[in-house]
Simulated assay, not measured.
Amino acid sequence: MSRTSKMATGLVGLALTASIATWLSPAQAQESVPTPKAMAAFRVCLAAAKAGVDCGQPVYDSCQAAHDQPDTTLSITECTMTTHKAWDVILNERYRAVIAASPPNFKLKLQKAQRAWIVSRDADCAAVYEAYIGGTIRGLLYAGCMVEKTSERVRWLKEMGED
């Protein structure tokens, strides 16, 4: 193989790698939103949730059912990020409720803690994404990290809001 052919093959490989990384990037995977029906099922599950129940499953399943290529790395990643969006909606609702019901001192501490948590969550999940830089699994691992961290925070905020 000539030097020019090797260079062209390398550029094609680089373009393909860049293309794969693009469709699995965290920013792009975050574009999907849960359907109102899936969000309603998610809320019902959360209201009656018992330990160990995966309330994100209805959101994920709805996303997969609507996807034109279900059960692919891309759809799994996108649907996991859709599940993250559902958790993020609940997180923001619970945060606002706790803030609204809190005395000023606690409110300031919680606002500071929430800002720090967002930075920490994003850094942790970005590190997961970067650790798997050469693989197509990186987007899914990033999405899973976002779901895990956000769902944990929702539970924590629920405890903070209970009397």
Rank of each mutant, 00 (worst) to 15 (best):
M1W: 04
M1L: 07
R3N: 08
M7C: 02
A8W: 05
T9R: 08
G10T: 00
V12S: 09
L14G: 00
L14K: 00
L14V: 00
A15G: 04
L16K: 00
T17I: 06
T17M: 04
A18D: 03
I20P: 03
I20G: 02
I20Y: 11
A21Q: 15
A21N: 12
W23K: 08
L24W: 12
L24S: 02
L24R: 15
S25L: 11
S25P: 09
S25W: 11
P26Q: 08
A27P: 02
Q28C: 07
Q28Y: 11
Q30L: 15
V33G: 05
V33D: 11
P34K: 15
T35P: 04
T35N: 04
K37V: 14
A38R: 05
A38G: 11
M39P: 00
F42H: 14
R43M: 03
V44R: 15
C45D: 07
L46S: 07
L46N: 12
L46K: 12
A47I: 01
A48M: 01
A48E: 12
A49K: 14
G52S: 12
C55N: 07
G56H: 03
G56L: 01
Q57K: 13
Q57R: 13
P58M: 12
V59Y: 04
Y60P: 02
D61W: 08
D61K: 08
S62E: 01
Q64C: 04
Q64H: 04
A65G: 13
A65L: 15
A65K: 12
A66V: 03
A66C: 01
A66R: 02
Q69G: 05
P70D: 07
D71Q: 04
T73M: 10
T73A: 13
T73K: 00
T73H: 05
S75W: 15
I76Q: 11
T77M: 00
T77S: 06
E78K: 05
C79D: 06
C79V: 07
C79M: 02
M81R: 12
K85Q: 14
A86H: 10
D88P: 02
V89P: 04
I90F: 03
I90T: 03
I90H: 04
L91F: 09
L91E: 06
N92I: 01
Y95E: 08
A97P: 07
A97E: 09
A100E: 15
P103Q: 09
P104L: 04
P104I: 09
K107M: 08
L108R: 06
L108P: 01
L110W: 06
Q111Y: 04
Q114W: 14
Q114N: 09
R115L: 14
A116I: 05
A116P: 08
V119A: 15
S120H: 05
S120R: 07
R121W: 02
D122M: 00
C125P: 01
C125K: 05
C125Y: 01
C125F: 03
C125A: 06
C125M: 00
V128I: 14
A131F: 10
A131T: 08
Y132M: 14
I133D: 00
G135K: 07
G135R: 09
G135E: 13
T136S: 14
T136L: 01
G139M: 10
L140A: 00
Y142E: 00
G144C: 03
E148R: 15
K149T: 11
S151R: 09
S151K: 07
R153Y: 05
W156T: 10
L157G: 01
K158A: 12
E159M: 09
E159W: 07
M160K: 15
G161W: 06
G161C: 12
G161P: 14
